Structures are given as C-alpha cells and as structure tokens.
Simulated assay, not measured.
Amino acid sequence: MDPSLLDSNLEDKDALFNQLLMNAAAEDPSILSALNKQAIPTTQVRPVPGFCLKTKTDKNEKVFVNICMADNVPAPKDISDEELIKLLESDDPTGYRVPMSIGEPHAEIDKSGQGCTAYDVVVSPAFMEKMKTSELFKTFFLTVMMEGLENKYEMLLSREWVILKNRRFVGTLQEQSVRTQSKPVIMEMDQSTSPSAGSQSQSQKSLIQEVSSSQEEMKSRGKEPDYRIVQEPAEGHPDFLVAEINLPQVKVSSSINLDLGEDRILVQTRSNIYYLDIYLPFYIVQTECGAQFNRKTRILTITMPVLPES
C-alpha cells in the first residue's frame, strides 16, 4: 500500500502520460518543457514524537517504529468508526487511505546495549489525535504502516508488536523532506493551442464517467463546480486519470489555486467563486501531474499518472 512503490510497467505508463502531454502541446512544445521542469517544493521537518512500537523481522532482528507527527503531512478524510468498518468489510477496503511519510532506517542501541534498527513514520497531528481516541483507527493504521515498511524496504515484520509504555521514541528522530505544496503549474491555453473538450474522439468520450456535483452552495468556500473524470484504460487499474473541471466564471489561470494530494484534488478560486475537494479512487504520481486551463472553454484539465498496483 506504500505509494512510493513502482513496478516494471512504469516505463509503459510514463510513455502513455508523455503521449497525452504531447497531444495537448502539439502546437506549442514549450508547454511540455515547462511542465517537465517544474520545481518540487519541499521543506525539512523534524518529526514530533507520538508513540513507539517494537517488533522484529523474520530474521529475529529487533525493530522500533517511531510514530510521529508533523503539520506538513495532510490529514486523511475524517470518517467514523462505523464508516471505517463498512469500508473494511466492503469489496474495496482500499477506499480509505492515511497519508504518511516513511523515513530511512537508522541504526540505534536499545536499553540493553544491543544494536537495533529504528524507522520514523510521520502522520498529521489530527490523525494522531484520532488514534488516541479510537483503537480501531490505530490498529488499522499500524497494519497499513507495517505493510508500507515491508514493501518499501523488502522485509517481513512480525505482527506481534508491542507499544512501549514509557518511551515515545527510540534513538534520534530524523529530519524528513516533505512537500510544502502539491501545486502543478497551470498552463493557460487559448483556442489556438489547446484542444477543447468537444474535439475529443468518440473513443475518448466513451471513457468519461459523469460525476454529479452537489448543488449546495457553501457561502464561505464557493460553489462546487461540475466536473468529470477520465480513466485510461476504462476497465481495471488505470494508467492515468484526467479530471475536467468546468469553471465558467473564471477568466484566467491566475485566479485558480490547485492542490493535489496523493489521492485528492483541491481547487479554490479567487473571491470564493468555486470550491472543489474530492478524493480519487487511486494513488497518483504527484510529481508528474500537469494542469492546463483553456480560456475559451473555461475548463481546467488535470492529467494525473496513477501509481501501479502494489
């Protein structure tokens, strides 16, 4: 479940994504160049300790996991215990994801003077509070987190873990690089450089799934715009998703504030005209996403490569 995992099909998926960008930038190659040169803003954060878990590998090596928190890590969607239980019992238990940052291993000495390995896993402060009040969420998180460690570092960990009572962390917590924002550059297009939604081929149109938007206006945030999601391929695990968001009252891209999480789209506009906050059914490759705003159709198009199945 660790979104950093890649498989042998990554080159094929990169090719599909690059082809999509090339089509969009056919008459202006500088668009693709600008997207590929996006800076990835990060900040160094020192995790704040929460609690510490002790376990061991299948080779009987002692492992400590420091569960920490930092404001830079986004909080997951706030759901109840009952909603989580329903998700876990459903056919798609992956519908709820907890953003986390898994740090590099660091060698430490335990209280008996023996060598051990420690890992720092960082979540949002809000989710740390959630785990304090819900044993269900804590168990769910620890199970997912253990799978993430195993996948990332190719090891097997015992599920007979122990949470330390008198120590909140072991060793020295390591600084981690966390993205300060997930904002792809929005390339502004006019009718001569960007294909409109109406110019799609019939095969592309068949891949578009209409998503009904709420008619309720949120005075403090703005109205939720109409949007639709394109999945390619249409069946099974997609290679990429494309979101088309209709913003008829927006004239220029500078009025749009776009944030992309690992499975989330957040769009806000100046003067609170529109507000869209939706979760995606798949993890996306945030660093490779692209966004374009067509001034003629007033449509914001977001292209999002999807992480391969773990």
Rank of each mutant, 00 (worst) to 15 (best):
L258N: 01
E288N: 12
D2T: 10
K219T: 12
M128Q: 07
F240I: 01
V285L: 04
A197W: 11
L5V: 15
L10E: 15
T303S: 13
K296T: 09
E108R: 05
I109Q: 10
V63A: 05
A197N: 08
N9D: 15
S254N: 12
N60G: 03
V123N: 01
T42S: 05
S212K: 12
T42V: 14
Q181A: 10
T269Y: 07
P49W: 05
G95C: 04
S255E: 15
I245N: 00
V48P: 00
K13F: 12
M155I: 14
R295C: 10
Y96G: 04
E217S: 11
G261C: 01
I102Q: 02
G261R: 00
S203H: 11
V121I: 13
F140A: 01
S33G: 12
Y274H: 06
E147F: 12
L32K: 14
D259R: 03
L20C: 12
S124N: 03
D14Q: 13
S255K: 08
S134P: 03
Q181N: 09
E27D: 10
S194K: 03
L35K: 03
P281K: 03
I79N: 00
L20N: 08
K13P: 01
E129A: 09
N36C: 09
Y227N: 02
D2S: 14
A39Q: 13
S196P: 04
P248M: 04
V185M: 06
V211I: 12
C68R: 00
K37Q: 14
D226Q: 09
E135D: 15
S213D: 05
H106I: 12
T143E: 11
M22C: 12
E188N: 04
D92K: 10
N166W: 01
I31K: 04
L258E: 02
F141W: 06
T94L: 13
S182F: 06
S196Q: 09
T42D: 00
S33E: 14
G290A: 13
D91N: 13
L32W: 06
L5S: 12
E235D: 15
V267L: 07
Q200D: 13
T43A: 04
K205T: 06
D12Y: 14
V144Q: 14
M22W: 11
P105R: 06
F141E: 02
V123W: 00
L88D: 05
